[in-house]
Design a binder for these strands. Structure first.
Lengths: 218, 218, 218, 218
DNA sequence: TATGAATGAGTCTTCATTCAT
DNA sequence: TATGAATGAAGACTCATTCAT
């Protein structure tokens, strides 16, 4: 436009805010949703925490549910394409790839507030079918697909025993889901019930699975 | 009403019902809570399904939350003393005992509506701290204790390798929790995400664990 | 029930209120809707004017729209069956019957708050399609049908000239609608625009029509 | 932008548009108000349809209400001076003049979107007293005055019987108002209730009136 | 002039719980 | 005990209007 007139112009403050808003709101929503639950978080609280008025929230997200969907996408959904690429380029053994997957998930979801989103969705799925659908499409399906590909890779290379990968994935999913649910429900309320070392638990689970699955072990 | 009938006849239906009331309410609550969720179930629905009026429900249970607690106790809490006894009297190997535990849990909780209660509690724990406390006391603690004893039994007899039982139990708990959560959240909403054969999955998990844990396997 | 025990019992106060409530609410709604319009009347105002709380209103009418429908039925809809009977039994000439119809309408609707309802429905029809449907079914259709029967009666007896009754009715409807609209819009706001003598106007209109319609007149 | 072009060329499109803005906004408002109602039309929609931003609308019209007033003036108010002139110069009989008036109204209002404005004003008059006042001043008063003059002309010439013209005008106004209200409320919602041939209806009404009014008829 | 981001007042409806009967 | 009428707090979302740019 007028880029020729001012050499190092920056967007007007108003403009910069406009671009920053969605992120600020998403961040606020993530924190509050995880802390208080989706239903228990008032839209206005989210707006306040992001430093804007109620109306502004609805300027960027047509509804509270859409805000939730965006939070899912921002914190989890967008990881799958990246992971998919990583997997494609991975050079090592399938065991290592599997370990890498679980590790990545732990680092980027399990150990972060995003884990609260997973817990939330599983908790509220019944009450918000549209969110459940969205989650199924954007998270569950890609997630399963990714893990299935990893298992299939191992089977194809002869590293893993032949198996029904579409069922076997649950063996990987289960400990992850468990960890997130536990952390954000009983773990959050009764410190005594908290898990001591989730990462070690995860390690153990994966080792167990690999030993059970690798050809050499049998 | 029954004033015309003989005084020493069997208690009138009304009176017999009177004693059955709490149980009927509990049954109705279980069904509805599992089907629609805790928040989405109206107290009046519970009363209606039990054939009494809204007021009567509050005569037996001071609040909806208390009703929930009673449902937990009735459907899950009361199982632990029984299981504890069973365990005490079990004669076989610790592997078999472990399998038996998981089997019992599956039969009496996992495959029944009670599994929905577990899902519900994990979902609502944050919103109802009192319920979380209650659950921790009446379910989690006894459950962990029971499984810890089983593992310790195996270790003591030399059947299992030495281990930190208090962490190892999570390896058993995880697939159970996962199964219940999955079934009642994504599984209930997206048929495509449903698990095909939960029992087989469970079997597999236990086998995996036992192979990884038993001395002979190493 | 126990009617044999107490000779002249009356329903408990609570009970009597229950039966009186709908009427009280309907009355309050009629007044407020006519005075302020449907959209501009808050549900709570209606409840307050009826001396109950907001919640109670929704105990008797599932929604504000349903309340409106009930107001229509109560104040206008229920008149048609009565009028239909009257017409059936009318013995005089069709001219007299027509005059009687218009007279009845004026006495029971035009000159009463019910006229405000008609104005309201015509005003809000676009914004509340469901109400428009209801009104069409419960008021317009029966009203037209009634007037058509009257005209047909006159034609059949040779008192009126042959005509397309289904279009001719509008000649009768028009001045009534006009009177109600005028009274509740410009008439209500600008006293100077108010009609002086609506009844005389109506008389004049009917006379004009009858002159035009009666066979002898031609 | 146009700084590169010759200074004395025809006004740039932008500038020409600038002067056309109010008219475009008025046109857009007319269409939308009639289609969706006043309250249901968002200011932004009007602006959008006129190809400008929300802010610009408020630059030309201080409020939505003022926009409405301008729409009234533009589509109805400005007709009366013209009609008044026409009447002044009319040479034929008063019957013909009356027919001409009704005809003109039908052509320029009744059959055009302007009829929707009349309906709207009558609907919203209570909620917007200022609009009601404005309408009374700019439309009702001049309209009545015009018709009164026509009737008085007929009476003065002996063509019509003596009458209270200030009341008699309603006999002319009624069918017009009715037609507009009907078309834009029930007629718009329930096709079955729509009038078949409004023009014929109008004709009939006028004939009826003239028969009743002309001296010869008595 | 023109823009469009931001504001915040306003309202229907649900439902756990109470209490007069 | 049992009933069910009554209560009232709580929350998402819209949109006319403003004002910094």
């Amino acid at each position: 436009m007028s880029s020729l007139s001012s050499p190092n112009e920056t967007p007007a403050r108003r403009e910069r805010r406009k671009e920053a808003r969605p992120g600020e709101l998403l961040q606020a929503a993530l924190t509050l949703f995880v802390e208080k639950g989706f239903a228990a978080t008032r839209s206005e609280e989210v707006a306040q925490r992001a430093g804007v008025s109620k109306g502004t929230l609805f300027l960027y997200f047509p509804s509270k549910e859409d805000l939730f969907k965006a939070v899912i996408q921002e914190n989890i959904g967008k990881l799958f394409p990246l992971w998919s690429d990583e997997m494609q380029q991975f050079q090592g053994s399938s065991s290592d790839l599997l370990r890498h997957c679980v590790q990545s998930w732990w680092t980027q979801v399990g150990a972060t507030p995003a884990s609260g989103i997973v817990k939330l969705v599983m908790s509220e799925a019944q009450n918000f079918p549209e969110i459940a659908d969205y989650y199924q499409r954007e998270v569950i399906a890609p997630g399963r697909e990714l893990l299935c590909r990893v298992l299939a890779r191992g089977v194809a290379s002869g590293e893993f025993r032949p198996m029904d990968v579409s069922q076997a994935v649950y063996t990987l999913i289960a400990p992850m889901i468990f960890l997130m649910m536990w952390k954000h429900s009983v773990g959050a309320c009764a410190p005594s019930a908290q898990m001591k070392d989730p990462e070690e638990f995860l390690q153990l689970q994966v080792d167990l699975l690999l030993h059970g699955m690798t050809s050499k072990a049998s």
